[in-house]
Computed example of a mutant assay.
Amino acid sequence: MTDRLPLFPLSSPLFPGLVLPLNVFEERYRALVRDLRDRPENERRFGVVAIRNGQEIAPTGQEGRAEGPAAGLGDDPLAALYGYGCVADVADITESGDGGFKLHATGILRFRLLSVDASGAYLTGEVEELTEEAGSGATALAPEVTRAFRTYQKRLAGSRERSLASQEFTDNPTVLSYLVAATMITYTPAKQRLLEAPDAAARLAEELRLLRRESSVIEKLPSLPAVELTQQPVCAN
């Protein structure tokens, strides 16, 4: 199934189940949010795509900030963006005093980006929605990934962190795969590979490899400061 969506390029991918807060101040994205606000609540959706080559915020030159829906993405925005993204469903929109907006959205499903149109006030894209498949071996991989993720969080937070022991994780392999993908601290290309994985089993297998590698690296480093992410319960809803 294909659809046309407003596009919001960001420096990192969005995953299904992840809550996305946005502070919208550029005019192209203000126009996007104004159009979303005018739609029925059940139709306030847009596509989030990670930037492969370019800038999230339009560059500023001698004559001020560059204008246009593809500012910061070069002459070919399709090539500047990764080929897979996530549909975001808007929960609330609040207008700021300066004419900008604050909004919260939630990732709901993945898509393949087929084309990009830069002829309007903001980018739009033709997208193909992707079905979710568990894949072979996902159920068996889930507890292994959960254990590896606990170890990763503990080592990242430091040996004094005890609150992680009682943290509950979902038994759903697909939901778990997205929770781990969204929570891991790693580079955008690695996160993008997880988003593009063909099914939950492939995503979990890659996460298991990454978690074991990162835990091993952290163990060999001097103690690191705890990060807020590892001190709070994580939820994919």
Rank of each mutant, 00 (worst) to 15 (best):
G97H: 08
S136T: 14
P59L: 14
I185C: 05
P77M: 06
S119I: 01
P173H: 10
G64R: 03
I108S: 11
A91Y: 14
S223R: 14
L78D: 01
P143N: 11
N53M: 08
A201Y: 11
R28F: 03
F149K: 04
P13H: 01
S166L: 10
L5E: 07
R65F: 07
R4C: 11
C235Y: 12
L81M: 04
L164Q: 11
R4V: 15
G125R: 00
S216G: 15
E128Q: 14
G107L: 13
L103A: 06
L113D: 01
G68P: 07
F111W: 02
T94F: 11
R45C: 10
V48H: 08
L20Q: 15
A71C: 10
Q192F: 07
F169N: 12
A190D: 15
G54W: 09
Q232E: 10
V116F: 01
S177C: 06
F46T: 02
E95Q: 15
T124C: 03
A80N: 07
R4K: 07
D92N: 13
E214Y: 10
V175T: 15
R44F: 02
L176G: 14
L195H: 10
P40W: 00
Q167D: 14
Y178H: 15
T174P: 00
G17C: 12
L195D: 03
A202G: 05
S119D: 10
E26W: 08
L109Y: 14
E168M: 10
R39Y: 06
S177Y: 10
I93R: 06
V90W: 09
T124K: 03
L221Y: 04
E161S: 02
A205Q: 15
V48Y: 04
I108Y: 04
L210T: 05
E228D: 14
S136M: 03
T151H: 08
Q153S: 12
D98Y: 02
M184R: 05
S96D: 10
L229M: 15
Q153G: 08
I93S: 04
E95A: 11
L103Q: 08
E128P: 05
L81G: 06
L123K: 09
S11H: 05
P198A: 04
Y82N: 08
E56Y: 01
S223A: 15
S11Q: 11
R30H: 03
A201M: 07
S163D: 12
I57A: 11
T174R: 10
A226T: 14
Y122F: 06
G158I: 13
L7F: 00
